[in-house]
């Protein structure tokens, strides 16, 4: 027993070492790519709280990501609020927006829920696109000056790493809490959970708001990292990206969406460099992954690991 309980420490240690030491070894380009992967990983994992654990397929999640990003951008560019105040404001504003939209969304089930989230997501996009006086419309807000400790790629990476890790830790605690377990019950059998006496809509709303809040943090991280924010952040195609990341990485595994984010971003970047027919190559790779790894990459790894441990027991 003691031997096995050490193994996770090894794994986490290795993960921490790999992620922590990465900027010391990598060039600036790869540090930037890794930072973007970390942010997208948080975005995808926040989404998976809804999809993987709550069984709610939202097509408007990018809206909350955009709210987070725009909150930071507008506060810093338009009102000259310093970063350390603008940054925490982002999840707060996002939570507020999510509470209002979520109030309506969680009352619906299945497809109807998805359609309404899509509508709200596009509504957020529409507001950003049209309200030029505040958001500068389709030009986006460019030239967000990050504080000095974030201007170097290393500083930006470590800041993102620490915050992403903290948020993922919180997500883990949420999932492991009685609330998280009840959420699983709702996913598996909503009616039965309701009969037990659980206020299903209230818990679904809580999950919706929490999930959106973490997406808001991801957006708030991306704004100073990117230096600019655009209405496309809120577009339904962006929401589609996180759905893909979650399914690709494995939506029933805690870190699955993060793995999906890493694969999607790396593939996108690498293939675009080598060929202008990148959509074809990317499409084929995704097709193979979805056909042969229906439970996602992490789901496949889990099956392998299980098979291996079963084998050693027999021998």
């Amino acid at each position: 027993m003691r031997g096995t309980s050490l193994r996770p420490l090894w794994g986490w240690g290795l993960l921490a070492l790999g992620l922590g030491g990465f900027p010391l070894l990598a060039s600036e380009f790869y540090i930037r790519l890794a930072t973007e992967i970390l942010i997208m990983a948080l975005f995808a994992m926040s989404f998976n709280l809804l999809l993987g654990y709550g069984g709610m397929l939202s097509f408007g999640h990018a809206g909350f990501y955009a709210v987070g990003a725009y909150t930071v951008a507008i506060l810093m560019k338009k009102t000259s609020v310093p970063f350390f105040l603008a940054f925490p404001a982002a999840p707060a504003v996002t939570a507020l927006v999510a509470a209002v939209t979520g109030y309506f969304c969680v009352r619906l089930r299945g497809f109807y829920f998805s359609i309404l989230t899509l509508a709200f997501g596009q509504l957020i996009w529409g507001v950003i696109f049209k309200w030029s006086a505040l958001t500068e419309g389709d030009d986006g807000i460019v030239g967000i000056r990050a504080p000095t400790f974030l201007t170097s790629s290393g500083g930006s990476y470590y800041f993102t790493l620490v915050l992403t890790a903290a948020c993922i830790g919180l997500l883990w605690m949420i999932i492991e809490s009685p609330f998280g377990r009840t959420l699983l019950a709702i996913r598996e059998n909503t009616d039965r959970t309701q009969f037990i006496g659980v206020d299903v809509n209230r818990l679904r709303l809580l999950a919706f708001v929490l999930s959106a809040t973490f997406a808001g943090v991801a957006g708030a991280l991306f704004a100073p990292f990117n230096g600019s924010v655009f209405p496309t952040f809120a577009l339904w195609t962006k929401s589609g990206e996180v759905v893909m990341m979650s399914i690709l990485g494995g939506m029933h595994t805690f870190l699955g969406p993060a793995v999906g984010a890493a694969i999607m971003l790396s593939l996108d970047q690498m293939i675009s460099v080598y060929t202008e027919y990148w959509p074809f190559v990317l499409g084929v790779i995704l097709l193979v992954l979805v056909l042969f790894f229906p439970a996602g990459i992490t789901g496949f790894v889990r099956v392998l690991a299980r098979r291996e441990s079963a084998g050693t027991r027999l021998a």
Partner: peptide, 10 residues
């Protein structure tokens, strides 16, 4: 299961 996955990931 969690351990081995974390291992592979790390």
């Amino acid at each position: 299961k969690v351990l081995s996955r974390v291992w592979v990931l790390g």
